[in-house]
Every structure is written in C-alpha cells, then in structure tokens.
C-alpha cells in the first residue's frame, strides 16, 4: 500500500514537472510564432508596396515613350501577315527606322 502511495505521489510530481515544461515550451513557441507572424505581415506589406510600384513603373503612359525611343511602334495592319503569306516567303520588312 505504501509503495503504491509513493509511486502515485512520484507520478503526480513528475506529471506536474512535465506539465510545467510543456507550458513553458508552448509559450516559447507562441512567442516565436508571433515574431514569424509579424515578419510575414511585414513581408506582405512590402510585397504590396513593391507590386504597386512595379505596376506604377509599368504603366503604359511611361512605357510607351521608352518603347518609341527604342524604335518600336504600335502594331498595325501592315505588320500583320495572314498565314499563307509566310509560306510564300513574301515577308516585307517594317518601315520602322531607328533614325
């Protein structure tokens, strides 16, 4: 009977320690989770800003003058050739000139 009591008390003590340890670990994990969450949040915010900036830089209003300076021009009917034309090899070069 006494042995049983001692074992039970030991079990209770060890489980208390175990529980304390678990609790402590959980808190640590939670803390690092918050840090990660905050990092993710910041990264998401940065991504949003970068996406907006990229879209702003790629707006047609800005790209068009740059493209024209490179000698590009809007696609028009004379750049297009119906399918059979290619086979016949009558490809005409564009009149585009880079000055």
């Amino acid at each position: 009977m006494r042995i049983l009591n001692v074992v039970a008390v030991l079990l209770a003590l060890s489980s208390a320690f175990l529980l304390y340890g678990l609790n402590y670990d959980t808190r640590m994990i939670e803390r690092s989770l918050h840090v990660r969450e905050r990092e993710a949040e910041r990264a998401r915010a940065d991504i949003a800003v970068l996406r907006a900036e990229r879209a702003h830089l790629a707006r047609p209003e800005r790209i068009e003058p740059l493209a024209r300076r490179l000698g590009l021009e809007p696609l028009s009917a004379r750049h297009l050739l119906p399918g059979p034309g290619l086979a016949a090899g009558n490809i005409t070069t564009s009149s585009t000139s880079v000055r």
Binding site: P74, L75, S76, A77, H79, L80, P82, G85
Partner: peptide
C-alpha cells in the same frame, strides 16, 4: 481601330 485591333486579337484580313 488601327492601334487597338491587334491588341484585341482581331485578325487583319489580307488586302
């Protein structure tokens, strides 16, 4: 129309 037709993927008929 000359500018947007190619953007909209409307094929040009052969002339």
């Amino acid at each position: 129309i000359e500018r947007i037709a190619p953007l909209l993927g409307v094929p040009a008929k052969s002339l």
